[in-house]
Computed example of a mutant assay.
Amino acid sequence: MDKNEFWQIIDSTKQASQGDQQRQQQALISCLESYPPEQILEFECQLRQHVLEADTFLIMAAQKIIDGYVSEDPYLYFRCWLVGQGEAVFTEALRNPDSLAALLEEPYQEFEALLYVAGMAYAARTGKQTEDDTFPRAVAITRGLDYADSVTKGEDWTENQLPKMLPRLWRKFGTL
Rank of each mutant, 00 (worst) to 15 (best):
residue 110 E to Q: 15
residue 41 L to M: 09
residue 134 T to I: 01
residue 90 F to W: 02
residue 164 K to M: 05
residue 73 D to G: 07
residue 16 A to M: 09
residue 111 F to C: 01
residue 115 L to Q: 11
residue 25 Q to A: 10
residue 105 E to G: 13
residue 131 E to L: 10
residue 111 F to T: 03
residue 132 D to K: 11
residue 68 G to D: 02
residue 9 I to H: 09
residue 123 A to E: 08
residue 120 M to Q: 15
residue 37 P to L: 13
residue 57 F to Q: 02
residue 146 D to I: 03
residue 31 C to I: 06
residue 55 D to C: 09
residue 103 L to T: 11
residue 174 G to K: 06
residue 60 M to H: 01
residue 167 P to F: 03
residue 28 L to Y: 10
residue 173 F to Q: 11
residue 83 V to E: 01
residue 98 D to A: 08
residue 48 R to S: 03
residue 154 G to H: 06
residue 96 N to I: 01
residue 55 D to T: 04
residue 42 E to F: 09
residue 15 Q to N: 08
residue 30 S to N: 14
residue 114 L to K: 02
residue 128 K to R: 15
residue 77 Y to I: 05
residue 165 M to V: 00
residue 103 L to G: 02
residue 141 I to L: 07
residue 160 N to F: 05
residue 83 V to W: 00
residue 79 R to M: 01
residue 105 E to Y: 12
residue 36 P to Y: 11
residue 143 R to M: 08
residue 144 G to E: 12
residue 158 T to H: 08
residue 139 V to N: 09
residue 93 A to F: 08
residue 48 R to N: 12
residue 133 D to E: 14
residue 161 Q to F: 00
residue 137 R to P: 03
residue 4 N to W: 10
residue 79 R to V: 00
residue 93 A to H: 03
residue 119 G to I: 08
residue 84 G to C: 06
residue 62 A to F: 08
residue 81 W to H: 04
residue 80 C to G: 07
residue 45 C to L: 07
residue 91 T to Y: 02
residue 103 L to E: 14
residue 22 Q to F: 12
residue 10 I to Q: 01
residue 98 D to F: 01
residue 32 L to V: 11
residue 36 P to I: 12
residue 114 L to I: 06
residue 60 M to Y: 00
residue 58 L to R: 15
residue 50 H to E: 00
residue 124 A to I: 12
residue 146 D to Q: 09
residue 102 A to C: 06
residue 148 A to G: 09
residue 116 Y to S: 14
residue 140 A to Y: 02
residue 51 V to E: 01
residue 16 A to Y: 06
residue 48 R to E: 05
residue 164 K to Y: 04
residue 83 V to G: 01
residue 5 E to Y: 11
residue 85 Q to T: 01
residue 19 G to A: 06
residue 67 D to V: 03
residue 87 E to F: 07
residue 139 V to L: 02
residue 153 K to E: 10
residue 88 A to Y: 00
residue 105 E to S: 12
residue 53 E to S: 07
residue 88 A to E: 10
residue 51 V to W: 00
residue 129 Q to V: 15
residue 16 A to Q: 09
residue 21 Q to P: 03
residue 109 Q to M: 14
residue 80 C to R: 02
residue 116 Y to A: 10
residue 32 L to W: 07
residue 92 E to C: 07
residue 84 G to P: 05
residue 119 G to S: 14
residue 111 F to A: 04
residue 102 A to L: 14
residue 28 L to W: 07
residue 26 Q to C: 04
residue 118 A to L: 14
residue 8 Q to T: 14
residue 94 L to N: 02
residue 39 Q to G: 07
residue 157 W to A: 04
residue 42 E to I: 07
residue 83 V to S: 00
residue 116 Y to F: 15
residue 36 P to K: 14
residue 73 D to H: 13
residue 88 A to I: 04
residue 1 M to K: 10
residue 143 R to S: 06
residue 100 L to N: 09
residue 3 K to R: 14
residue 54 A to C: 04
residue 33 E to R: 13
residue 109 Q to F: 08
residue 80 C to K: 02
residue 136 P to T: 05
residue 166 L to W: 03
residue 143 R to Y: 05
residue 75 Y to L: 13
residue 53 E to T: 01
residue 36 P to T: 10
residue 63 Q to F: 05
residue 106 E to D: 15
residue 157 W to I: 00
residue 63 Q to T: 02
residue 18 Q to D: 14
residue 19 G to M: 04
residue 13 T to Q: 12
residue 163 P to A: 07
residue 165 M to L: 13
residue 76 L to I: 14
residue 11 D to I: 09
residue 33 E to W: 03
residue 71 S to A: 15
